[in-house]
Design a protein around this nucleic acid. Sequence first.
RNA 1: AGGCGCGUAGCUCAGGGGUAGAGCACUACCUUGACACGGUAGGGGUCUGCGGUUCAAAUCCGCACGCGCCUACCA
Length: 890
Amino acid sequence: MDIPKQYDPKEAEQHHYERWEKNGYFAPEINRDPKAPVFSIVIPPPNVTGSLHMGHALQHTLMDVMTRHKRMCGYRALWLPGMDHAGISTQLMVSRALKKEGKSRHDLGREKFVERVWQWKRESGGQITVQMRRLGDSVDWSREKFTMDEDLSRIVREVFVRLYEDGMIYRGNRIVNWCPQDQTVLSDLEVEKQPQAGKLYYLQYPIKNSDKRVTVATTRPETMLGDTAVAVNPGDERYGALVGQTVLLPLTNREIPIIADEYVDPQFGTGAVKITPAHDPNDYDMGLRHNLPQVVVIDPHAKMTADAGVDFAGLDRYKAREKVVADFEGLGLLEKIVDYEFSISKCERCKTVIEPLISTQWFMKMDQLRDVALALMSREQLPHFTPETYRKVYTDWLENLRDWTISRQLWWGHQIPAWYTPSGDVIVATSEEEARAKAGTSELTQDPDVLDTWFSSALWPFSTLGWPNDTEDLKTFYPTSVLVTARDIIFLWVSRMVMMGLKFVGDEPFADVFITGTILDSQGQRMSKTKMNGVDPIDVFDKFGVDATRLTLAQVGSTDTRWNEKQVESYRNFANKIWNAARFCLLNSEGAEVKPEILEQSTALHDRWIVSRLNRAARDLNAAINAYDFHGAVQTLYHFFWDDFCDWYIELAKADVTAEQDSAARTEARTRLLTVLEHALRLLHPFMPYITEELWQRLPGEKGLHAAYSGAQPTVMLTAYPEGATNLVDEAAESEMQVIIELISRVRNIRSEMNIKPGERIPVVVASSSENLRRVFSSARDQISRLVRASEVTVNERLDAPKASARAVLSGGAELAVPLEGLIDFEQERRRLQREQEKLQAEATKLEAQLGNPNFVERAPVERVNEVRERIAAIAQQSSQLQQTVENLQ
RNA sequence: AGGCGCGUAGCUCAGGGGUAGAGCACUACCUUGACACGGUAGGGGUCUGCGGUUCAAAUCCGCACGCGCCUACCA
C-alpha cells in the first residue's frame, strides 16, 4: 500500500465534492425513511456580485457542520442555496462597466440596461457558488434560487398586492434619506453614521420691528435659505418675550415666525433653533406640528434650487454653504464659528453624504407586523437567539420600529406592481393584465421604482419553498430549523423575515437564530475592502487546506476573534496527524477490516477504555453541536483524536497490531483499531469532510451507512453519526486506565529529570495494597514496559526497592520505584521529591484552612466537605510515603 | 447620550461559585518502523482594579479604568 507521509489537502479536495453532488447526497430525497425527522436551513443569500469572504466562510462552515451532522443523524436534511440580486451593488457594478465603454445606463434605456445586467449575471455572476463548492457546502443545488427568478418575482408581487390591499403599503410624500450620487432613496438602515470634525456656525437673525437679533447655531448654514421658523423651548425665560414675534430672514425676502416647541433643548447652542422643514427630519416633524411651509432649496443632485434665490440657484450645497457664511459675515450677522464634532449620515454603498429630502415614495407600515413578532417573542420566546443577548437587541429594535421606505429609484430589482391611469389613479395588481382589467383601460403607466432588495429577502424562507402554493417542500421544511447569520443584518433581514413569515405563512420562519462572531484582522480591526486588510479564505484553503480552515472557523463560533494563521496551521498539523494515524492503521491492516460489533466485545483494559472514550466523545459532540457550542465540539474532537486515540490507544495497541506473526489476537487488535478509526472519522466528518472521506474510502470492510440511506453508494457522509451509547461509557475502565497513564507519566518524568539516556532500559517496581490495582498493573505490564522503556516491571503488595531508587506516589494509593544503582544523583532526586512534597503541601494547606473554618463545615454541602476530607487524607498518605522515601535516601 | 459585549499564560482564545485550561510561542532531551506538520518531560497566570454577597468569587452583584460594537432627532 502506498500512502504518502504527508497529507495533501488539494488532492482530497479535488474529486469528492463532485461525486457527492452528482450522486444527489445533498438532496433531502436521498433519505428513504418516510418517518425521518426534518432539518432545514435556508442560506443567507449572498450577493450575486459577491465572492466568498471570511464572514461567509464562517457562516457556511457552521451551517455545513450542522447540516452534515443532522444528515448523519438520519434527518431529512435540506440546506437550500441561492443568491440575492442585490439591487444597488449590482446596478452600480454594471454601470461602472458601461462607463468604461463611455456609456451611461441612460444611454441604453431601462430595458436594454436590465438585459445587460442579466447578461452580466449569466456570464460572471455567482462566482461565489464555485467557492462554496470548494468549501464543501452540502447545499442542495437542485433547489438553488435567485431572488429575481420568475417564480420568486411573482411571489414578491403577490405579497405586495396583499399588503397594499390590507392597507399596510402606501404611497406618501415625506422626508427621506436621499443619496445624491446614486439618485435613490435609502432606508434608515442603509445609511451609516460617521463622526465628522466640522464647524458650528452662529448666525444672527434680525427681529422685525426691533434692533435685537436672535442667534441660531447650525452645522449646515446653507439650509437657512429654506428656514420657515425659529424655535425656542416654551420654558426658556430668555426667549419668552420673543415667541410670536417675527424674524427677518437674511439673504431672503422672507419673514418667519418664532415659535415654541418642547423639542428644543435650551442647554444646546443658543437655545434657539432654525427650522428647515424641507431638509431636516426633526424640522420636518416640527413643521408638521406647527403647520410651517416647506421651502425646498436643495434638489436631488444636492444643488440649490431656484427657491434658494438667484444668488444661490444652481450652486452645489457646499459652495452655497461658503457663500451663505460669507454673506452673513458681510452683513455683520456672523457671530462666530466654533469647531464641532458631529455625526454625519452617508450612503453605505457610495459614502456620499445623504441629503434629507421631501419625496414621494412607497412605505410599509410596520406596527401591526411588529406587534405580532413581539407577541411571538413574549409568548413563545421565538426565535431563540444564540448568544441569548441578541434577543434584547432584536426586541429593542422592534419596539422602536418605524415605517419602512420600500421604493428605490433603481432599474435593477422588482419593479413596483403599481400602475397609474391617465387620470392619476393608482392600480396595484400582480400583473399588467390584471391591472388593466381592474382599471378598465389599457392606458397604464407602471411605477418606475423598484423595491428595496430586502423586501424580497424578507420572503426568502417561504418564497424558496414554493409559497403561496401548499407545496410538499413548504409543508416539510417550513419553519426552518435555524438561521445562521452575522449580527449586522438582524434588523435588515432577520426581523423582517419573522414578520413576513408570520403574516403570510402563519408560522415563524425559524426556531433558532445563531449569530456568528466577527473575524477581525490581526490588529483587531474589521476586515474591509477599503482598508485592504481582508484575508481571502481561498488563499487560506490553498495554504492549509479546507478542512483545517473549517476547523479554525468552527471554533470561532459566536466570538469576535482576531484572525490567527497559527491556529490554522495547528489544525493543518492536526489533519496531518489524522492522516498518519490512519496511515499506521492501514499499513497494519492485513487480514482485518472494519467491524462495528467488535467494539462491544472488548475485554482488555485499553480496549474498553478507548471504546469508553469514543462513546463519551460522541455523546459530548452531539450535545455540543445541538447546543451550538462549536468551540467545545472542536476541542472534544481534537483531544479525543490526538490525546486518546493517537497518544495512548495506538501506542498501547501497537505491539499487538504490529506483531510479526499472524494470529487471531493480531487480527482482532487490527480489526478493533480500524473500527475505532472508522468511528472517529465519522465523528470528524461534519467538520472535516474531505480528509474523512478520503480516508474512509480507503478503510477495508463493509462499512455500513445509516439505515435511512441504505442502498446509496458508500460515503462517510451518509454513515450514522455515533450517538455515544451510555452503556459503553465505562467509568471503571477510565479510572483504571488513568492510573496506568499516571504511572507511565511518572516514570517518564523520572527518566527525564534524572537525565536517563533514552536508550537505557530501567527496572520499574510498582506496589499497591489494592489487589485490583495489582491486577491492572500486571495485565498492563508489557505495555508499561514498552512505553517507559523498562527492562522489567515488578508488581508487589509492598514497595520493595533498593535505597538508590527514584520514587513516586500515585494517586490511587500506589507507589513506584525506579532502582537506579549507579545512575541516581541523590541530591537531584531529593530536590525532585522536595518539589513534589511542596506541591502537595500547598494544596493541603489550602484545604485544611477550609476545613478549619467552622462556617464551611456547617454550611457547605456535605458531599463537598467529605470531598475535602478525602482529599486531605489522600494527600497525607502520599505525603508521608514521599517523606519516607526522602528519609530512605540518607 | 443610552444599550450590549469584552478585559484569563508572551500571543490567539476556552472556561465560569469549590485544587487555573487549550493551541501557538518558550526550555531540555529524542531522526524510537504512523507522523519532526512528530515524540517525551518541563517552565510560565495574585483570571484589569476596588468594594460587596457567600462557608467559598477568576466565576455572581456594584463601581472605576481600558477596548470594541450597536442604537439615537441635540441644531
